[in-house]
Design a protein around this nucleic acid. Structure first.
Length: 360
DNA sequence: GGCATTTGACCAAG
DNA sequence: CTTGGTCAAATGCC
């Protein structure tokens, strides 16, 4: 693991602080405009989230495990933001979870072959059109498909991808792409491991990687190289996004297998035709997707007894495939760009989603 | 030729 | 034993 914890910590903390400041400003603003009460509730939750996230970061952990815990938290933070698992129901971090969950991550960077205890997180992406611009793949990294498998309970096969630079740079990041049975427009991307390669967001050479079912990589390949610099102005990015999505629409209309065919896509002008699933990331009764700042991260408790599994669900409508990075990679410390890619994002964490027992 | 995907086989986990 | 994840040979594309 090559994630520099100190860099991670600083970056994450500065982002959290910045986000908290913004939320406070928003609260003031909302208050002055006599907004509905729920807005204030939301802001309060945002602030609470930041505070607790910062608390997690600052928490040193007991005894000799401190360094390890912090390092592993950093690894997790690089993947998903702030891990849920360290937070017990009473709000206190538990170092056992840190060690159990994230040490495995470190181990598996060395021992790639066994799937066992690879920390992973899931990004659910809704694809509003079937033009070949499936969201899951356009995450700024270069992936190489190495397998596909029919899953017993799944209608669609699962595709397996690994980092293109696995051999050359010993980058063991992998991801799985699974189309949702219930809603075929949703792809569930499970990321495993973090990128240690230097071909991530800041140097992505294949921002429009292949779709899971039918690779259209080559068609997009030549469009992509101008749209990857995270230091670009957001305005420029938006222009590129629109431009390239149009290219994608014109090029990739036959990108899927017959069985994957979906109803014709209608390109919504307000969202560039691309949305992230928010329904999995918000508590329906509490949050309105449209109310939020643009990004949420959801973590559920480890589902395996060994606590080596955590799952987060991302939502970011600031992320347009091929031009923005999905959150896990944005938060990856392996993309050692001095300019944090998340600087340009409105960013919030919802404590209720981190852990239902966590908040207030 | 180089690099990608496809796909059946193999292997480990549960 | 079943299933999911990975390997690697075959194949395709540029």
């Amino acid at each position: 693991m090559e994630c520099g914890w100190s860099w991670e910590q600083k970056t994450l903390m500065s982002e959290l602080i910045e986000g908290m400041k913004s939320a406070k400003k928003l609260r003031v603003h909302l208050g002055s405009t006599s907004s509905v009460e729920t807005s204030d509730v939301l802001v309060q939750r945002i602030l609470s989230s930041y505070e607790k996230a910062l608390l997690i970061l600052k928490w040193p952990g007991p005894g000799s495990t401190t360094v390890q815990a912090q390092a592993t938290i950093g690894a997790a933070a690089a993947n998903c933001g702030v891990p849920e698992s360290p937070i017990s129901n009473n709000g206190s971090p538990t170092s056992d979870d840190f060690d159990g969950v994230f040490k495995d991550n470190l181990d598996n960077q060395e021992n790639s072959k066994k799937r066992k205890t690879q920390p992973r997180w899931t990004d659910k992406v809704r694809v509003s059109f079937e033009s070949g611009l499936e969201g899951p793949q356009e995450d700024g990294f270069s992936w190489r498909k190495y397998g596909q498998k029919d899953i017993l309970a799944a209608k669609y096969p699962r595709s397996y991808y690994r980092c293109t630079y696995r051999n050359t740079q010993n980058c063991w990041a992998t991801k799985q792409v699974q189309r949702s049975d219930e809603d075929p427009t949703i792809f569930e991307i499970t990321y495993r491991g973090t990128h240690t390669c230097s071909h991530g967001q800041s140097a992505q050479s294949v921002p429009l990687p292949p779709s899971p079912e039918k690779q259209e990589k080559r068609l997009n390949h030549h469009n992509s190289n101008n749209n990857n610099n995270y230091q670009q102005q957001q305005q420029q990015q938006s222009q590129d996004i629109l431009s390239n999505l149009r290219k994608g629409l014109s090029v990739n209309t036959n990108g899927l297998d017959n069985r994957e065919m979906e109803p014709p896509f209608t390109f919504p002008s307000t969202s560039f035709g691309y949305t992230r699933t928010g329904d999995h990331c918000f508590t329906p009764s509490m949050l309105d997707e449209n109310t939020f700042l643009g990004f949420s991260s959801t973590y559920t408790s480890p589902s395996t007894p060994e606590s080596d599994y955590f799952l987060c669900q991302m939502n970011s409508f600031g992320d347009v495939q091929g031009f923005g990075a999905s959150v896990p990679e944005l938060l990856s410390g392996n993309n050692s760009s001095a300019n944090s890619p998340i600087l340009n994002m409105d960013f919030s964490l919802d404590p209720a989603e981190i852990d239902p027992n966590f908040l207030i």
